[in-house]
Design a binder for these strands. Sequence first.
DNA 1: TGACATTAGTCACAGGAAGTGACTAATTCG
DNA 2: CGAATTAGTCACTTCCTGTGACTAATGTCA
Lengths: 224, 224
Amino acid sequence: MPDRKNRRPASTIDVVLLTAVGSQLAVLLCRAPEGRDKWVVPWDSQRPAETMEAAATRVAKAASVGEPAWLEQVGAFGDGKRHPSDADISVAYAGLVPMGTPSPVGGVYAWFTLSDVPQLAPRQRLLLDSALATIRLRMDQSPVAFRLLPQMFTLTELQQTYEMLLGKRLHKASFRRALQAAWLVEPTDEWRSEGRGRPAQLYRYAPRKRRPAQRGIRLDLLSS
Amino acid sequence: MPDRKNRRPASTIDVVLLTAVGSQLAVLLCRAPEGRDKWVVPWDSQRPAETMEAAATRVAKAASVGEPAWLEQVGAFGDGKRHPSDADISVAYAGLVPMGTPSPVGGVYAWFTLSDVPQLAPRQRLLLDSALATIRLRMDQSPVAFRLLPQMFTLTELQQTYEMLLGKRLHKASFRRALQAAWLVEPTDEWRSEGRGRPAQLYRYAPRKRRPAQRGIRLDLLSS
DNA sequence: TGACATTAGTCACAGGAAGTGACTAATTCG
DNA sequence: CGAATTAGTCACTTCCTGTGACTAATGTCA
């Protein structure tokens, strides 16, 4: 929870925590002290002798969701846009929390699906969008999707997670073929019956040593 | 040039300017006021009512290389590592300058190829490495390579630029095939004779509207 | 109990993209 | 004029991806 000090801080650490709620991404917001229906991205100012990442972890823990499964700096934001703290600069972190993590108690924090995010201070809105863009970028370079799932999961769940992050449907056979080529998961002995239909085998994230050969010249430089 | 104020700033803007020297990447450093052989990444503190990006552009211009052809924020750095300014936080920017830009005058600034970079303050060394990593990441998503070349260039020069950034050799036919599929360049009417051998046609960067369809599930999640 | 719906998992083929070597083209040098 | 050198293209092979159809294992319901 933001420690609202009286003095205006030089900089803040803002943490955008994301999880999956149903088939949508959701972000954790904190109720602002003033105003019932005002919400803010959790933030605090850095303490002496504390690294920025440590501060971000502390802010995430204060939201009582435990340590995030993944945390990465998004960047520094300022440029005249308003922030709850009035600080000149806000350093944003993006964090991932496994789906199913219980919603924090007390009504101070709450998960908002992306389409339901209320109005935020301009700088925090920018923060949030950049954090999402960063996550989507990291998708192809870092096992981000696994951080949204529990330790064991079905391949269908994994595919749905990828579809949520990519924002498009994937073909089952293609997805599994790519997964096999990437040596990212290994099967366990357990199976899960989801009501109707054939039970699914559970897998765990277990990346193997990779062939360093990244082939293909991809000049798929997109828009921009 | 860093304005060395007496008061210790809360944060600084550090600019890592890169160009191509021969077939290697080079970074622009500034001679430190104290000590003949000490060098620093150009930095300054942000001025009131100035955006961070504007400050970064100003620092780049002060190095008398004109406005960089590309500029992007890398992130915020701090975490106890020393910085020439003693500031808590340094926000790093990476910038690209076309090759052949004249080396700044006065002996205050100089280009260093990556293997010749002298010892820097720990935080600035980290800054620099992160800036390089960012550039290499952006390669596939942004037409970074073109920012290192003059407006008109031969396809061999473009290929050599890509090879420098990727750190590996590319096959001529594959490279050109990918380039054609990407609709990134268009030929001009001019040719350049480089001494011996057949003259090469000059091209210019002219991205066309792209099919938005990015195919392929690439789970080439690397190391990390 | 047996047909059907539902979900998991696999296969095989077609089409397209990337790796590669060899080829032609145009110039300089001797 | 011929050799050397660099630019540019072609064609063949191999591999990767899109896709639909198939089998497998469960629950549901008549």
